[in-house]
Design a protein around this nucleic acid. Structure first.
Length: 214
DNA sequence: AACTCGGGGCA
DNA sequence: TGCCCAGAGTT
C-alpha cells in the first residue's frame, strides 16, 4: 500500500468515525491507568459500569491499599480476570506511593514495569493522558491492520505496531489508534465484518477475498 | 508460542 | 450453550 492509499484509508475511516476517542471513562491519569488495566479481555462498557462506582469509592492509591484484597476483588467482581486485576492494582498503588510520590509516571519505560501494565496499556496511558503520540495495538487494531494489509497475518503485535508507526506520520499515531479501534469495534468486526457496505473494499486485502468467495 | 485467568454480553 | 471481549504474566 503506497502513501496515497494510506492517506485515503485514514481519511475514509476518519469520515466514518469523526469522533473516535478513548471510550473508557476517567478524569485523570491514575483513573485512566486503572480503567485500561481493568479493560483487558472485556468490553469498555463493562469497565465503565464498574468504574462508575469504583472511582467514587477509591480516589487515591492510598484508598486502594487501605482495604483488604477481598474487598477490592468484590468491588470489581463483575469484570473478568478480577482476582489478577485486584492483586495487580494493589501492587501498582503500593509502587506509586513508595516510588513515584503517588503519581502515575509519564515515562513509557516506567509504566510497563508496573504490575498489570503491559505495552498496550502503557501506550494508551501516555497517548491519552500525557499527549505522547502512540499506537496501542489491541485485538481490534491487530485484526483490522492485518485484514486491510497494513501488516501480515504472521506478524506479532509488536511488528504490527512498528509497521503502523512507519506508515503513519508521528503526529497522527494517537488519532490513528482511535480510528482503527472504532473501525474494528463498530464496522470491521471480528465475526461480522460489513464488507458489503465498506468504503475501503477497493484497497482491502481480506475484503476482496471475502467478497469473491460468496 | 502456548497457556491461564474469568465474568458478562450476545447469538 | 458456545464463543469472544480496548491483555498481561508465566512457562
Amino acid at each position: 500500500m503506497n502513501r496515497a492509499q494510506i492517506r485515503h484509508l485514514l481519511d475514509t475511516i476518519g469520515n466514518m468515525f469523526p469522533d473516535a476517542h478513548c471510550e473508557l471513562n476517567h478524569s485523570n491519569p491514575f483513573e485512566l491507568t486503572i480503567a485500561v488495566l481493568l479493560s483487558a479481555q472485556c468490553t469498555d462498557e463493562t469497565v465503565n459500569k464498574v468504574t462508575a462506582d469504583l472511582f467514587r469509592k477509591y480516589k487515591t492509591p492510598e484508598d486502594y491499599i487501605a482495604v483488604p484484597l477481598e474487598e477490592l476483588e468484590q468491588d470489581i467482581r463483575r469484570i473478568g480476570l478480577f482476582r489478577n486485576k485486584a492483586k495487580n492494582i494493589q501492587k501498582l498503588c503500593w509502587i506509586l506511593i513508595h516510588e513515584y510520590g503517588g503519581e502515575i509516571p509519564r515515562e513509557h519505560e516506567k509504566l510497563v514495569q508496573l504490575p498489570g501494565v503491559g505495552r498496550k496499556t502503557a501506550n494508551v496511558v501516555v497517548s491519552n493522558a500525557f499527549d505522547v503520540p502512540a499506537i496501542a495495538v489491541d485485538t481490534h487494531v491487530e485484526r483490522v491492520s492485518k485484514r486491510l494489509g497494513l501488516a501480515n497475518w504472521k506478524d506479532s503485535v509488536l511488528e504490527v505496531e512498528n509497521k503502523l508507526m512507519k506508515k503513519v506520520p508521528r503526529e497522527e499515531w494517537t488519532l490513528t489508534h482511535h480510528r482503527l479501534i472504532f473501525f474494528g469495534r463498530y464496522h470491521c468486526k471480528a465475526q461480522n465484518p460489513q464488507c458489503e457496505v465498506c468504503p475501503l473494499l477497493d484497497l482491502c486485502r481480506e475484503g476482496k477475498k471475502r467478497m469473491k468467495t460468496r
